[in-house]
Design a protein around this nucleic acid. Structure first.
Lengths: 210, 210
DNA sequence: TAGATTGTTAATCGATTAACAATC
DNA sequence: TAGATTGTTAATCGATTAACAATC
């Protein structure tokens, strides 16, 4: 049992619901309906209930969901009950931005090491981290129990860096380079493409002209 | 006719194909099959052909696609034949990274103005741009024919900034704040959420434990 | 109780894939 | 011609939505 396949879109939305709920909680709101959540994040109420139903029964019929409880449940489902240590390769502008990115901290992510193979960058400081040579990654991965790595290097270098990160013991990669990485089956990869969404906008605007 | 609805996933992939093809072109490769593209970006060959079929017949049976031609077609479809000027609000770390982001330039995007309402940031320089007060946005939007704006401010400020950007004449927003924006129907919005993909990774890793 | 809202099933909708005729 | 690969249709697959019984 529990062989039920969960759509990745459901996980994506769960992450969005979870953060929306935290904002409600901050405002002192204690109860929400699926309709409230739906309106807040721009999906249908049925969608919200269906997404939650994959994981259990969290609401009360006739009443709705307790905000604090639902935050706890969504955080648990997403694997965020415990904090995660991350390492990152690439000490460029994007890398620097990610190290100080507030949203990561808020969700329990902590970048514990920044690496680069550019000698001019090694030794530099980004926030309170010293940029380290790649050779030191395996040690840090082991010491800080790191399972996830962020790739913030140019496309050309991304595959080589991915190989090194995997050899260092990482099981999951968040890749900001706009290329498709080849990795062993046990390694999870997700790409964040900063340019694709922009091109969806240009596509839509270009259509308007006609 | 031509009322055929095109899936947004198709546009997303087209953007990815387009950039993959440019890399092939740089390597001097002149012809590709749908299978080559599929393998290069991690989808099925049928998917590639179907995606292209929404827009025309670009290949030669028994041969494949001419790389340079297909680049031209995909670029045209995505509305990227002409360069786009962008404005951005938010001169923080993320904003700074985006101004210098190579991938944007490569695809014909140019950030022509950076704005902030933080007095300590106004007047500062990011790359070769001076950070300007929001009041100057309408003028710049008009002068540079800007239609798309980037939101790189904290979540709290995002809705207010979006309202101002729309009033300044923008028709499309690329939103890096992890909240759902309320905008008029004619305004296109896409969110880039840096944290969601990371939470898909933690979800998957957390599943492994069991 | 009456009103509200969940949890869940079945119906609908849409996207992906398989398969093959067309054709280079 | 034989082999290869496209363009396209039909079949499959999967996700969303509508609807309603359950129940607070």
């Amino acid at each position: 049992m529990k062989a039920l396949k969960i759509p990745e879109a459901t996980i994506t939305r769960l992450s969005i619901y979870s953060r929306f709920l935290k904002r409600l909680d901050k405002k002192g709101i204690t109860t929400v309906s699926s309709g409230d959540i739906a309106e807040g994040v721009g999906v249908s109420p049925a969608q919200v209930r269906k997404d939650l139903a994959y994981f259990g029964e969290f609401g009360t019929r006739g009443v709705g969901y307790n905000v604090k409880d639902l935050i706890r449940y969504t955080v648990k489902i997403l694997g965020l009950s415990e904090p995660w240590n991350l390492v990152m390769v690439g000490a460029g502008n994007l890398g620097s931005a990610l190290v100080t990115y507030r949203e990561f901290k808020d969700r329990g992510f902590s970048i514990v090491g920044v690496f680069d193979n550019d000698l001019t960058k090694i030794g530099k400081r980004i926030a309170d981290l010293e940029v380290l040579p790649l050779e030191e990654m395996p040690e840090m991965v082991k010491e800080y129990n790191v399972r996830i790595g962020i790739i913030a290097v140019p496309s050309k270098a991304a595959q080589d860096i991915a190989d090194i990160m995997i050899k260092s013991g990482l099981e999951a990669l968040l890749n900001f380079a706009p290329i498709s990485l080849n990795v062993p089956d046990y390694v999870e990869v997700r790409n964040v493409d900063l340019s694709v969404k922009l091109e969806i906008l240009t596509f839509n605007l270009a259509l308007r002209e006609k």
